[in-house]
Amino acid sequence: MARLLKNREILLLVIIVIMVSGFSTRAPGFASPANLANIFNDTSILIILALGQMTVILTKSIDLSVAANLSFTGMAVAMTNAAYPDLPLALLILMAPGIGALLGAINGFLVWALQIPPIVVTLGTLTIYRGMAFVLSGGAWVNAHQMAPSFLNIPRMPVAGLPILAWIAILIVIGAWFVLTRLPFGRATYASGGNPTAAIYAGINIGWTRFVAFVLSGALAGLCGYLWVSRYAVAYVDIAIGSELDTVAACVIGGISIAGGIGTVAGAVLGSLFLGVIKNALPVIGISPFAQMAISGIVIVLAVVFNARAEKKAGRIILRDRGAKEVSA
């Protein structure tokens, strides 16, 4: 048991289970299947964004523009739907990740070709993309009645007990797991972040790897643009503002090293669910939204401290021979 708890993902899962059962003593029904499904559905967008963020972070980069990308893309598809209600829905659903990928490619290009630090690039594009959403819409809202019912309903349609939105998140989790563990590109992301120099020596093009990671993150953010707008049935400039920090927080809580090269899909998903559970539980047990933000913040700092300690421990073993014996298979 103690060994199992050393595994970051299992530990996090146990903490989430404890939290849920703790909350259900205060708020009956919190642990009911319907409410859990609801929390998962609520967290779906964060999970998708966090998986993109994770891919970028693995390569020793960061993408702060995901929420702005979501906002612009969401606005673009909502306005397209409002202006041309006859366009097939499939086209719009393809358009969202397409626009997102393009915006991600801009980030990736600046990082790769111009060698600008990712945090600077995406801090810039964060403002630019949000500004573009404002220019596009002129600051106006796109409301539910302007959008086609099918456009709005698809993500909420329940299939086998879960809304399509949740199913999309599940598919993307599987896809991300597949890409990161079964494709050479996935290995390249871990290697580029784990040791960029060693990656270059091993024949990996780390610039290209980072570029692709940004494109993926952008495409997922774009897809979330459509999902967000249809789920909340409204598009305006400030949607999902600040969510980029939630995605980073989810990654950090999930044990993804901010220095790159370490992390799993399960970690990112559980980190997102952890935040999702807190966000859903605190109002139920009567804690003010202001305290919620403080609590999330404390959890994030604790997670970073925890990560830093875990990483330092791993580093110290390098100097010692007995390190190898400490690890049993």
């Binding site: 784990g194 040791n195 120099t197 090293s257 791993a314």
Partner: peptide, 8 residues
Amino acid sequence: RHGLALPM
């Protein structure tokens, strides 16, 4: 520095 990705 050049040879190995230590976390992998």
